[in-house]
Amino acid sequence: MKKNTHILGIETSCDETAAAIVKDGREIISNVVASQIKSHKRFGGVVPEIASRHHVEQITVVLEETFEQARLTWDEIDAIAVTEGPGLVGALLIGVNAAKALAFAKHKPLIGVHHIAGHIYANRLEHEFQFPLLALIVSGGHTELILMKKHGVYEVIGETLDDAAGEAFDKVARMLDLPYPGGPHIDRLATKGKEVIDFPRAWLDKDSYDFSFSGLKSAVFNKIHNAKQRGESLRKEDVAASFQASVIDVLTTKTFRAAKQYDVKQVIVAGGVAANKGLRSALKNAFAESSTPLLIPPLHLCTDNAAMIAAAGTVAYEQGKRSGLDLNANPSLLLK
């Protein structure tokens, strides 16, 4: 009988210090996330230097907790997977250097993982993959459509040309004086508002799967600004609903069209914005009639965590990919 594969994952690319152990790339044995959101809230966004300071304080505590929950010993760990990029460089460095120290001290193979590959593989903790599959990644740092024909190989067929979707949510939230992080607040307000403002949709070229949200962001800004100047009142709920409708319309339409064109067997959604209820229901509606299954992971696997890094790392491990002790953080790492 084949022995089980246990991979330790480490993720520190933004404001969560996380570690996890995953069995055979599909089963979470332990999953620990130390969030810094409370600390960054007072600044209205993630402050890189503060994030790095928290990571270095938390890293060994999180590792200890991960092993305690797992009730595993080091003998049972096959390799260490760590987010190599993209992300905040100072934050990434903590995870990368911790992973290298572990790999050396415990004589384990080291595997650098792309953060977005992690988001994609979060889905495999729930459902086995069927290829070809299409992944829509939507988070504060990313908006991408990725086609996968087999494990570990990623083809970016569309990406944002400016702001990430989550970034647009945060910026619009700030215009509406909503606290950080703004996404959930917009989502909540949107359910109480009506789509009375016709904000633009950036379709770009007819066949393009790329995205753009900066025009929409400016349109929202102008709308609020002009209303203020004319002394008109604008319902925050309506602005939120109209803005969110524009984002969701573009995301859903392009995802649906790509799924059809590439004749995929699965569509998966990942990243922090996948927690948005409006987006979840719009995608579900769009794919309700289609024969292509739509998979959205539970909320705790949509946001940053290390189980997803361990899951993606498992595939890389099985494919023989290894990193050296000279592995570095790469804030602008490309997904290949």
Partner: peptide, 18 residues
């Protein structure tokens, strides 16, 4: 800051692991 954190992270993690 970055340099200090690289040293401290490496040292702390090694000490914890060993």
């Amino acid at each position: 800051y970055t340099g200090v954190r690289i040293g401290l992270t490496t040292a702390k993690t090694m000490a914890w692991a060993l």
